[in-house]
């Protein structure tokens, strides 16, 4: 939590236009309603950069990261699959199909301001069901088959999104946004879309922490200890998909966050989901914040798509997990 606060503070101060650390905090301080205007010596431009651009972006990054970290922990817990995350399961791409369709064809206010997250949630859920259907053989889902099904669906949906984008103007930037994700050009309105979903999703998953612990022992064990297995699975999957949809609606598809973060947390605090879930939210926020900061400044003033940064970190990590799993199996055999 402390680390997150420090990260937010630092990240706020780093940006393509140079405003000093003290100035950033001075500006923020003077935004608080009870401070007087006496010490206000900053230009309107600087104030706008800090409050409208940076602060909202930093907060949005933290929220999106928290959503994806949580969703990853949820998917991994309920599927008992270390390789599961919103991206590898194709849920992110599924949500992006719905969101991209609405935005590109101008239907984003069909059902009010919640249109995009609702539709993204629906298409994300549908994708999850599709992946399960592909991966299931004789009632069981192999870990590798599930990921394979996720990858197949994800590339199909990614192509579909690109196709839809091609029909509209401003092609390249939009494709990049939906396939690789970005937090650029975002405003407070986006924060208010993600925040409520997180407020629903976080306590929901925390409440199921102990249930997910029992899932680690196997569904049968969990049932014998008094867990309603099917209901628990459904609720956690719905919650995780909701969080994914919220994140994707505002930031496009950002891969591997939900995969990397819960694993790193697990290495630090062990497998207990009661700790893992809240810490995955915090860790996800931090991971996203730093990834976005790198994306902003590495080639400043140009931005790298955020998904590029997370994939550069996440994909090797994914390979490492796969390798370790393979070695583990050989060890048993």
């Amino acid at each position: 939590m402390l680390l997150l606060a420090v990260s937010i503070a630092l990240s706020l101060s780093i940006g393509s236009s140079t405003i000093s650390f003290a100035d950033v905090w001075g500006i923020l301080w003077h935004q608080l309603p009870w401070t007087d205007d006496a010490g206000n010596r900053w230009g309107a431009g600087e104030i706008a950069i800090v409050t409208q651009v940076r602060l909202s972006r930093v907060l949005l990054g933290v929220l999106v990261g928290a959503c994806l970290g949580l969703a990853g922990a949820g998917f991994q817990g309920v599927l008992r699959n270390p390789l599961a995350d919103p991206y590898t399961l194709g849920v992110s791409s599924g949500s992006s199909v719905g969101a991209a369709f609405l935005i590109l064809f101008g239907y984003q206010t069909l059902l009010g301001e919640w249109t995009i997250p609702i539709i993204a949630f629906a298409t994300g859920m549908a994708t999850l069901l599709g992946v399960f259907f592909l991966a299931r053989s004789r009632g069981v889902m192999q870990i590798e088959t599930l990921v394979l099904a996720g990858v197949i669906i994800q590339s199909f949906l990614g192509a579909f999104v690109s196709f839809m984008v091609s029909l509209s103007d401003d092609v390249i930037n939009q494709i990049l946004f939906w396939l690789m994700g970005s937090l650029a050009m975002k405003s407070w309105a986006d924060v208010y879309i993600v925040l409520p979903c997180l407020i629903i999703g976080l306590p929901l998953l925390i409440a199921y922490g102990q249930a997910l612990n029992l899932f680690v022992l196997g569904e049968r064990h969990a049932a014998h200890l008094g867990i309603r297995v099917e209901r628990t699975k459904l609720i956690v999957l719905i919650g995780s998909t909701l969080l994914t949809a919220a994140a994707v609606s505002v930031s496009g598809v950002i891969g591997f966050v939900g995969l990397v973060v819960p694993h790193l947390i697990r290495l630090m605090v062990g497998p207990d989901y009661r700790l893992l879930i809240p810490l995955s939210a915090i860790g996800g926020g931090m991971f996203m914040l730093w990834s976005d900061t790198i994306a902003r400044i590495a080639l400043a003033p140009k931005e790298i798509p955020l998904g590029v940064v997370t994939a550069l970190i996440g994909a090797p990590f994914f390979a490492y997990l796969l390798y370790r799993r393979k070695k583990g199996q050989e060890g048993l055999g």
């Binding site: 612990n213 029992l214 680690v216 196997g218 014998h224 200890l225 008094g226 062990g270 497998p271 207990d272």
Partner: peptide, 30 residues
């Protein structure tokens, strides 16, 4: 039901990352 009836199932426990004590504590879940 879990407070009245417990099951020791075939095949035992999977090799999870929990400690022995943590797993035994899970028996109090009901």
């Amino acid at each position: 039901l879990a407070r009245k009836l417990a099951v020791l199932q075939q095949g035992g426990l999977p090799p999870a990352g929990f400690t022995v004590r943590q797993v035994v504590e899970m028996g109090r879940f009901p």
